[in-house]
Design a protein around this nucleic acid. Structure first.
Length: 304
DNA sequence: GTCCAGGATCACT
DNA sequence: AGTGATCATGGA
């Protein structure tokens, strides 16, 4: 499908609320905010005017973010919507919680990781709905981030709920389970289409209990449950646990991280399970957070 | 045209 | 248990 991406630079500001200070000391530099938005954990957000403004959905609410001249994080939402400040802070992870999550990483003796963290100060794993993250990472395999974005944009546009011009929520798993394969192929999913549909049909047998069981399980068991879905292997399962389940020990081993582990940590001939094992031991209980900094830095130094 | 992308799966040893 | 080919699709 051609469908050029929408022009969102022409917002009618009269429909938006005044900018409001989030009243939390987030301390996120603009470049790090763009990495949060574009770095492959959330896919329907837009960065406007080069690191000046970010627009997207939090659950079903449309939000803009910006950083004031005093380095304060501010937001604005549609006037027709309910206030959303509390959920927004929760989505971004409150600063105190963030600091506590990062603390174990600062204790590590790892000059390379320190460099990655310094370069992307404030970079964080968002607290997004598990249901959405499962869909997004089912689409992610063997695709570039910009392609995953377009795929998901089309899926939301065709089968999700419209929120505002150009912005749609993701469809529910019930909705997806009733689609034809052709519907998904038309969104550019390729061979992932049958995985998405197959997973949806399995989940939709009892959606609530599926996600409840997932949330109630210990991480190893949750990973096993996820990998029973078609299209979910070890890496995708770890992404879902990390980005949709606050399971910060999950360590997604993608091509970039593999490159880093081989070149920066000397794991030249180790197998993937061995590398995963090393990473979990070396980086400790919040290994997944370390992974996010390394991923961002590796892509950055190779200019992507 | 070739290579590769935030891999998973199946068919082979 | 560990490799290799194959899977759609689009960008570089």
């Amino acid at each position: 499908m051609p469908e050029r991406s929408l022009d969102i630079t022409s917002f009618d500001s009269s429909e938006w609320s005044e900018w409001v200070d989030l009243e939390n000391d987030f301390e996120i530099p603009p470049a790090s905010m763009t990495e949060i938005i574009n770095g492959g954990q959330t896919f329907l957000w837009h960065t406007l005017e080069t690191d000046k403004r970010w627009v997207g959905l939090v659950d079903e609410q449309l939000v803009q973010l910006r950083i004031s001249s005093g380095d304060r994080l501010e937001f604005s939402s549609l006037k027709i919507q309910e206030p959303i400040a509390e959920r927004l802070v929760d989505w971004l992870i409150p600063p105190e919680e963030y600091a506590a999550n990062m603390a174990p990483l600062y204790l590590l003796e790892d000059a390379y990781l320190k460099q990655c963290i310094e370069h992307f100060r404030g970079l964080r794993v968002l607290n997004q709905p598990l249901e959405e993250i499962l869909l997004t990472f089912l689409c992610s395999s063997n695709k570039q981030i910009v392609q995953i974005k377009r795929m998901l944009q089309l899926i939301a546009q065709h089968f999700g709920k419209p929120v505002w011009e150009g912005f749609y929520t993701y469809p529910s798993w019930e909705t997806i389970s009733q689609l034809e394969l052709e519907d998904l192929l038309q969104c550019g999913t390729g061979y992932r289409g049958k995985y998405i549909l197959g997973s949806a049909q399995k989940i939709a047998e009892d959606t609530e209990s599926f996600f409840k069981k997932l949330r109630d399980s210990e991480s190893p068991e949750a990973k096993k449950l996820l990998m029973e879905l078609p299209g979910v292997g070890s890496k995708v399962a770890d992404c879902i646990l990390l980005y949709g389940g606050k399971r910060y020990e999950a360590f997604p081993l993608d091509t970039w991280i593999l490159k880093a582990m081989r070149e920066r940590y000397g794991l030249k001939k180790e197998s993937n399970p061995q590398i995963l094992d090393f990473a979990k031991t070396h980086f400790g209980k919040n290994a997944g957070l370390a992974q996010q900094f390394i991923f961002a830095y590796e892509r950055k130094v190779r200019e992507l």
